[in-house]
């Protein structure tokens, strides 16, 4: 009975903590959890893409708002896309981003993440969490996350490396594809890119 009560309490406490987790704490917790796994996993360090993608899928993605990311990447054209096109686009863009992000993780060595001081007003629903990647022998790299509060929980919608938004950096390329072949042309272009990366990854393993 005592055990059950403790378990119940623990569950209750965790649930509350997660519901009220502030953005900077969320970023720090997820980063440290992921890096902890990467540090211990030889497969990931050796570039086992599939394994990293599983890790990213499980730990990182639940904290990302991919619909918002895709809308941000596309800009004004987003509203011209049908709900079904938006869905397809989000799915393809998500695959592309996950692969890029996963590959960045496999090159992780002994970098240290420093979390910059963070301030927000209780009413804020859109914030920037600033971190810095430090590596012996290299200059520190600025790594910032934009988060938005959706339905009471914070989700990342942009990742900015050294001032370069990994999301808006696609704006021009996406608009170019839309001009050439419409929204469907863009979906096809990203899908083709994903396919070529996937077959490339398979060829690497052989």
């Amino acid at each position: 009975m005592k055990k059950l009560l403790a378990l119940f309490l623990a569950m209750f406490v965790t649930a509350t903590v997660f519901a009220e987790e502030v953005p900077d704490v969320l970023v720090q917790r997820v980063t440290e959890e992921v890096l902890d796994i990467v540090r211990k996993d030889k497969d990931i360090q050796n570039g086992h893409t599939q394994k990293v993608m599983e890790l990213v899928d499980k730990k990182v993605l639940p904290n990302f708002n991919f619909t918002r990311m895709t809308a941000l990447a596309l800009g004004k054209e987003w509203r011209k896309a049908s709900p079904q096109q938006q869905q397809q686009l989000t799915a393809e863009f998500r695959t592309l981003l996950v692969r890029t992000y996963s590959n960045a993780l496999t090159s992780y060595k002994n970098q240290k993440i420093v979390y910059k001081p963070f301030k927000m007003a209780p009413a804020d629903t859109d914030v920037l969490v600033r971190t810095e990647v430090q590596q012996p022998g290299s200059k520190p790299v600025q790594l910032d996350y934009s988060l938005e509060k959706v339905d009471g929980s914070w989700k990342v919608y942009d990742v900015v490396v050294a001032g370069i938004s990994l999301v808006t950096n696609y704006r021009d390329q996406f608009n170019q594809e839309v001009r050439n072949g419409g929204i469907d042309g863009l979906i096809a272009a990203i899908a083709a890119k994903n396919k070529s990366l996937e077959s490339g990854a398979k060829a690497d393993k052989k």
Binding site: Q142, L166, R171, F174
Partner: peptide
């Protein structure tokens, strides 16, 4: 290299837009 190779639909445009964003960030000191 690998990041650009994998992430970009059009490498030229990806590099260009990354450069312009990075410069903007530097001009405003981060």
């Amino acid at each position: 290299d690998k990041v650009v190779e994998e992430a970009a639909l059009d490498k030229y445009a990806y590099v260009r837009d990354a450069y312009l964003q990075r410069r903007r960030n530097q001009i405003y000191d981060g």
